[in-house]
Design a protein around this nucleic acid. Sequence first.
DNA 1: AAGGTGTCCTGTGTGC
DNA 2: TGCACACAGGACACCT
Length: 276
Amino acid sequence: MPELPEAEVVARQLGARVLGATIKDVWLGRPDIVRQGLDTLDWYRGAAITGIDRRGKSVILSLAKASDTRYLIAELGMTGLLLFQGVPVRHPQHLHLMLTMDGGQEPELRYWNPRRFGRIHLLDKPGLDRFLVKRFGCDPLTVSWEEFRRLVGRRRGRLKALLMHQQVIAGIGNIYANEILHRARLHPHHTASRLKSERVRRLFDVVREVLTDAIRHGGSSVRDFIAPDGTQGLFTRRHLVYNKAGRPCPSGCGSRIRRLPGDRTSFYCPFCQRLR
DNA sequence: AAGGTGTCCTGTGTGC
DNA sequence: TGCACACAGGACACCT
């Protein structure tokens, strides 16, 4: 499912193939997929795509028409995909939004989402600014060490919950939280503020290593994630713990990966990731 | 205020 | 074989 690396892969492909294109037409299958700004949908016809950005797990298109600028935010949620024309989808009834375009390298961009945990937001600049402030904490790829240390130090909840807290650190979901914690040899239930400085540093380094490595491999194709051009993410093959309960820990410690009871779906090594 | 829990939503996997 | 049901989880409302 799309987390930061997958959203980044999506944004980079859009940046390469549809940046600068003009929207000819907008087709909306299900109006309730647009959470905000449905009444502005007509504005987007004839607008030019002037920017593609990622924030957390969302992809943001900047669009310009005459002297106006508006934004289209695609939350990918658990199962959302942005796809170019011709990429087959399994349940076509869940194609909710289609943009047809001129002047780019792709004639069409589609938003597909069977579970509808992701939505579309159509916003002006003040709306975008409010949205960004409300929804997203720091970006784990660009946050400074000082800021990261401060954020971790003031949180009294569980470490895994902190990693996945979008308003604190934006972009890490369940899969990457599991992979990060294993590589940093930290227990998911460790109290964040009680981590020793050297362990916070290890976490800080591992977060960036894992996410950049995942982006380099095109993300993880768990539960049918594919990039806009239809290609799979290969980082799935490098997963060490996610969905691997019962398998030997890849560190060679001799323990087996376990599911952590009382948590949604945490996978960890009870030997390598001890609470103390 | 921060942290925890329940709900939404629907395809998939499991078990009878 | 077919059906029922638990499960998956990001965001958000709500509660403490």
